[in-house]
Design a protein around this nucleic acid. Sequence first.
DNA 1: GTCTATAGATCGATAGAC
DNA 2: GTCTATCGATCTATAGAC
Lengths: 185, 185
Amino acid sequence: MARRFAERGEIVPVLAEIFREHGFAGASLSEITRRTGLGKSSLYHFFPGGKDEMGQAVLDDVARWFERNVFQPLRDSEEPAAGIDHMFKASVRFFNSGRRICLVGSFALDDTRDRFAHVIHGYFAAWVGALEAALRRSGFDGRRAKEVAQDVVAGIQGALVFARSQDDPRLFTRALKRLQRLTEP
Amino acid sequence: MARRFAERGEIVPVLAEIFREHGFAGASLSEITRRTGLGKSSLYHFFPGGKDEMGQAVLDDVARWFERNVFQPLRDSEEPAAGIDHMFKASVRFFNSGRRICLVGSFALDDTRDRFAHVIHGYFAAWVGALEAALRRSGFDGRRAKEVAQDVVAGIQGALVFARSQDDPRLFTRALKRLQRLTEP
DNA sequence: GTCTATAGATCGATAGAC
DNA sequence: GTCTATCGATCTATAGAC
């Protein structure tokens, strides 16, 4: 049969959505074959390491997206406030205004973390680090910059949990507006 | 054999710990039999509904603990500030200073939420509602009381995710100290 | 209430043809 | 690269004796 995917990279976003919905442990290969339209053999062709390699690929993909679309702008923007504003806008977009959870955060909660400890640690450390640098450049002293960066990044994660618990995405977007105020000098 | 547990209630905390570590989907009956020391038949004797009933029992148990130890003090304490301070202390204790995740929050993230939507919704709504009432009594106007209550409850969830991602519980306790400052008039 | 034994489904993963 | 077929392990859940 003609191949449905030109490359492995086109499968990864589908995998990401499945892991978001079911968690890593709850995502079964049969669900993955169904949603990707690929047989198991094709999946193992692209991901010889099985589910673990799929999880790794998905986390890498998310981390790369944030590095390019969030962390770099935070570090490089002429105006730090512009980088920060861009971060909040990109977050609202990426998390689909609170309808989509954070894959990395969800993997961090249970023992899935131990399989992917390095990427998970790096993702949040990079986010806090980039935001901290921007806050420093916009006038926060070192200690406050770090605290605010942690509170904002953690606050986004918490807002995702809370909005989903109430099945109300507006709780996410409103929370982000208030978190953004914390970043104003 | 003599029974190891006098009643079902003594099994529930063990189940809770297992669900915390592995998530709902990742917690297998064989792990549960191992950790509880109960055979499958005994488990199905206590929980005829299987894993679903175990999950329900665990969530109910957590909700009851918070209702008694956190929400009621928030609503009933003579001094609202004392109730709020008690809430933060109880949270640090319950979440073992950031080493233990929130079961309800973790269930909220993936499709496990749909099985237990009612309890999960109720838990966070009750928490925010009780904190909001205390904030109002301590001088916050209606809108701010609601916003701060949401930010604090979500902030605790986010701090759990972030601290676990960095494998550093101190990030949790420090974040809670800063969240408490938001509740001071 | 707890045991042994096991059903029946589903799990992740692989073999080999094309 | 994708197919069919299938492995062995593990899964949730149940039956029936004690």
